[in-house]
Structures are given as C-alpha cells and as structure tokens.
C-alpha cells in the first residue's frame, strides 16, 4: 500500500449545537481519487473547508505529507500543495480567463513584491496559464472576461486555477453541479484523465461521476463517516443504501 499523503484524525467541528463534523478519520493515498458522498447538510463542504484551512476545526488533527498542518492558514496550505474548488463557483469575475489562471501561477512563483514590470507581459506567468487553459478546454476562451463565461466554463476555469498551482492534493466540491449533461461528461472525462497522477478528494452528488472517478468512497452522514471503501463495497453496503442511496434494505 502506498504511503498516506493526508491523514485526518478525530476531526470535530460544531456550529452551535449542530455537529457538522463529528469525529471524522480519513486516510488518503498518493494518487487516489477519494470521493466523499452524503446527503445535503451531511457536512461535506464543512469538511473540505477544514482541510483547505478556511475553517478551524474544534479538535482533531490533519497531517499532510508527514507534517501537522492543523493550525496552518489557507494560503499556507495552498503553498504546501493544497488546491480547491468551491461549491459555489469562486473565480475573479472581472478578470479574463487567462488572468485568472495566471494569478494562480503567480501565487506559486515566489513572492509578489515586484512593483514595476507588467505581469501581463511575463511569459513565465502567461505560458503555463495558457497550457492549463488548453488542458481544461478553455484555450479559445482565454481572453474572455470570466463573468461572461457560461456556467460550465466557469467551473472549468476554477479547476484550471486549482491545477495551475500544481497541487499535491486537489479538493473538488461538487465540480459538475449545475452543469448540463454534455458539460458534465466533459468534466468527468477530464478528471478521469488526471487519475493516477493527481491526488483528489471529490465531493459530488452525481453518482455516475462518483462511480466513474472514485478509487475509494467515504459516505458522510450527519458529520460521521458511516462507510468507507472501494466503490463496489460501498454500493453493496446496506446501511449506505438506507441512509443515502434511498433504497429499502
């Protein structure tokens, strides 16, 4: 078995009386796609938030590549190799698609206390950004204002920004939500192309996407992981069927 790159232990986070994360353990192997599924309000986004560093857990620990990162901020984690997409698309709407991605490249190209040279003319930023845009299929839309991209394209752009940071761990919160069938298929196809070379945590409601992409699946219900394993195991698990897949056992 490959060494685990991410190790989450006994993570807890409450909002008032509501335990949104209620003792979550999670182990991620390098290169795997690990899906987290669960009903609405199960705490998936809250978990991603704690992994990415946007939310502070109440207790528990997160280790990444052998280092305890529980108390690191989101930018600190990003610089160690975390990248995320948000459930609600989060991009620079008033920047062009290329500028969006170039910023992600810039964030990982040393400090930005450079005051004089025009960043838009720096090939060291533009060229890698263009490559990633091509990869996600937005090459032809590089100079379009992000606000003017279609919804599906904006989701692609967000993934492009995450990838442009050359992440060691990619956190995707419902990447195909709100997409049309065709767009969603294209995204799934693209993500499956990353399989093996990119470690991914994938939160997704679309079960076709999940069963196509995931190497392992964890099922989160009321802040707890009730089942975790290979896709077939999880599909066969009676408790999961009752709690989530909505079938009578």
């Amino acid at each position: 078995m490959a060494e685990s790159i991410l190790a989450v232990q006994a993570l807890r986070k409450s909002f008032g009386a509501l335990a949104a994360t209620d003792g979550v353990d999670l182990d991620l192997r390098e290169g795997e796609t690990h899906a987290i599924i669960g009903p609405n309000g199960a705490g998936k986004t809250t978990l991603i938030g704690q992994l990415a560093g946007n939310l502070r857990p109440d207790s528990g620990s997160i280790r990444f590549a052998g280092e305890d990162i529980t108390h690191l901020s989101a930018p600190q984690r990003a610089r160690r190799g975390f990248a995320r997409s948000f459930q609600i698309t989060s991009i620079y709407r008033d920047f062009t698609a290329l500028d969006n991605v170039a910023l992600a490249v810039q964030a990982h190209a040393g400090h930005s206390f450079r005051f004089w040279r025009a960043a838009r003319e720096e090939r060291a930023l533009r060229d890698p950004a263009r490559v990633v845009l091509e990869e996600v299929g937005l090459g032809a839309r590089a100079d379009v204002l992000a606000a003017n991209l279609a919804h599906g394209e904006q989701r692609q752009l967000e993934v492009a920004m995450a990838l442009a940071t050359r992440p060691r761990l990619l956190l995707l919160d419902e990447p195909v939500a709100g997409m049309g069938l065709e767009e969603s298929e294209r995204m799934v196809q693209f993500l499956s192309g990353l399989k093996g070379r990119q470690t991914i945590i994938l939160v997704e409601h679309d079960m076709d996407a999940v069963f196509t992409l995931a190497d392992r699946i964890s099922v989160l219900v009321y802040g707890r992981i009730i089942a975790s394993g290979a896709p077939e195991e999880v599909r066969a698990n009676a408790e999961v069927r009752r709690a989530y897949l909505g079938e009578e056992a």
Binding site: N54, P75, A78, L103, M161
Partner: peptide, 8 residues
C-alpha cells in the same frame, strides 16, 4: 477567498 485559496 479565491486569493487565499490559491496561496496568497
């Protein structure tokens, strides 16, 4: 939020 998420 996006700016922090990409590492700034």
């Amino acid at each position: 939020a996006r700016t922090r998420a990409i590492g700034f």
